[in-house]
């Protein structure tokens, strides 16, 4: 009898269970489950949003870093180019200056040589002139001494002629 009552649902309990369980279900649905589930969802969404934002910020920083690096590389390359240009210009300038200095020195030397040559010629000419005058004076004195008589003059003419003859032969 008792055992049978165990598997035989009692009317009263079915009645109260249906009534009170459904009532509690509807009350909880409105006043408990809705705020709880909404709250959970909102919190999860806000956490997901925060994570997304953090990820985005990280990505932005990464792109910024990459940009900075590119900029730096560009600047370095430009500096290299500028330095190279400067070096080239300097080399060219130095080479040019050397060339010019050499040419100038050459010209100066040439002018000096020319002057030396001229001076030498002038000195030679004057020397010739003075030697000529001196020899004429000496000759005059010798002639005056040696050719004071006819015999001497004759002998001289003869020697001269002989000389001329030997030179012509």
């Amino acid at each position: 009898m008792l055992l049978a009552s165990l598997v035989e649902p009692s009317f009263g309990l079915i009645f109260w269970m249906t009534l009170s369980f459904l009532a509690v279900l509807f009350i909880l649905r409105k006043f408990a489950w809705k705020p709880i589930l909404d709250g959970l969802k909102d919190r999860e969404n806000s956490i997901a949003d925060a994570l997304n934002e953090a990820k985005k910020a990280r990505e932005e920083i990464a792109t910024m870093k990459a940009g900075n690096e590119a900029l730096m590389r560009e600047a370095r390359e430009e500096r290299e180019v500028l330095l190279k240009e400067a070096r080239d210009i300097r080399d060219r300038e130095i080479a040019g200056a050397k060339e010019k200095a050499k040419a100038e020195a050459e010209a100066i030397l040439e002018r000096a040589r020319e002057e030396i040559r001229n001076e030498k010629n002038a000195a030679l000419a004057e020397l010739k002139l003075q030697v000529g005058e001196l020899s004429v004076e000496i000759a005059e004195k010798i002639l005056l001494e040696k050719l004071g008589n006819d015999a001497a003059q004759r002998a001289l003419v003869d020697r001269m002629l002989k000389d001329a003859e030997s030179r012509l032969s």
């Binding site: 509690v24 009350i27 909880l28 408990a32 489950w33 705020p35 709880i36 709250g39 909102d42 919190r43």
Partner: peptide, 18 residues
């Protein structure tokens, strides 16, 4: 059940997002 979950629900609205 009513008492527990209504008070828990209150905690969710009062401390939203925490």
């Amino acid at each position: 059940l009513l008492w527990v979950f209504m008070s828990v629900a209150k905690a969710y609205t009062r401390r939203a997002g925490q």
